[in-house]
């Protein structure tokens, strides 16, 4: 599969030119293929949010390049805003950006800015509101009358209706209950499959990222400390914990078992994998420790 998004040595700092200058991101590089999911991990203030805003041209990097489908994002600065339809960015708490009188009009905002035809917009709105598991009669409601979880889904539908090739989500599940979280992830997976889109998820939950991601990017103090497959990154759990980051709980349990002297395979990041590894251990029958 071809590379859809690639960054090379991105650098950006806040308060540039003043004594309190602070590098928000420093030499960040990664690549993302179509149909892949990249998880971004890092502490608050590690530069995750700045990084995602460079990907659709909301922030212009001081140096370094973002390549979208092989083309420099800033090749023609006047056209950058059109790239925002191809790299859809869902901010943290996107429900606070809703503003129209009806859900229908709000979802239509992005597609309208793209200059799509009325029929196409209508088609997409109905398609994506259903994809997010909301009934069509929601379309005539005011977005301000909905519950928090419903608002979040409407906001996400507003981005999906632009049908971006790269979907970037900044902590999409913050403040949602477990059911809301599952529904949201299901919708994202559905969208990804259907459009063979690339997805980038910023999250604090190692469990969620382990389950959803193909690759992980670990950010610390503005630098990309690790970039690799989920297995590669979580295998370096000692470095991760030095940065104050975690590995999934199930991985931690296996690591503890191993520390107790059991010969268990610690390469498991979801409960299902962990159960398999423990069953294997039980079969081998060397629980005599």
């Amino acid at each position: 599969m071809s590379e859809i998004l690639k960054t090379e040595d991105l650098v950006f700092s806040y308060n540039n030119g003043s004594p309190v200058k602070r590098a928000a991101i420093n030499k960040v590089s990664f690549t993302l293929k179509k149909g892949e999911t990249l998880g971004i991990i890092g502490h608050t203030g590690s530069g995750k949010s700045t990084l995602v805003q460079t990907l659709n041209g909301l922030i212009k990097p001081e140096s370094g390049t973002v390549f979208l489908d092989g083309e420099d994002l800033w090749k023609n600065p006047k056209q950058v805003y059109q790239k925002r339809f191809r790299v859809g960015l869902v901010f943290q708490y996107p429900e606070y950006q809703l503003f129209e009188e009806t859900v229908y009009k709000d979802i239509a905002f992005g597609p309208k800015n793209m200059g799509l035809s009325e029929e196409e917009i209508d088609f997409r709105i109905k398609k994506y509101i259903s994809l997010l598991g909301l009934n069509l009669n929601y379309l005539e409601k005011s977005p301000f009358d909905l519950s928090g979880g419903e608002k979040r889904r409407v906001a996400l539908a507003g981005i999906l209706a632009m049908e971006p090739e790269v979907l970037v989500l900044d902590e999409p599940t913050a403040g949602l209950d477990p059911v809301g979280r599952e529904n949201l992830f299901k919708a994202i997976e559905l969208y990804k499959k259907e459009r063979s889109a690339a997805v980038i998820i910023v999250s604090h939950s190692m469990e969620d990222l382990a389950r959803l991601s193909d690759k992980l990017l670990v950010m610390n103090l503005g630098e990309a400390k690790m970039f690799g497959t989920v297995e590669e990154v979580f295998a370096r759990y000692e470095e991760l914990s030095k940065m104050g980051l975690d590995v999934p709980v199930v991985t931690k349990i296996l690591l503890e078992l191993k520390a107790l002297g059991l010969n268990v395979n610690t390469k498991a990041f979801t409960p299902a994998q962990a159960i398999k590894n423990i069953e294997l251990l039980l079969k081998e029958g060397d629980i005599n420790a």
Binding site: L58, R84, F91, N113
Partner: peptide
């Protein structure tokens, strides 16, 4: 701060 965030969010939806 909030205004900054909302501006960015609407720009991400292609607001001109």
């Amino acid at each position: 701060d909030e205004t900054d965030k909302i501006i960015s969010a609407q720009k991400a939806r292609g607001a001109d």
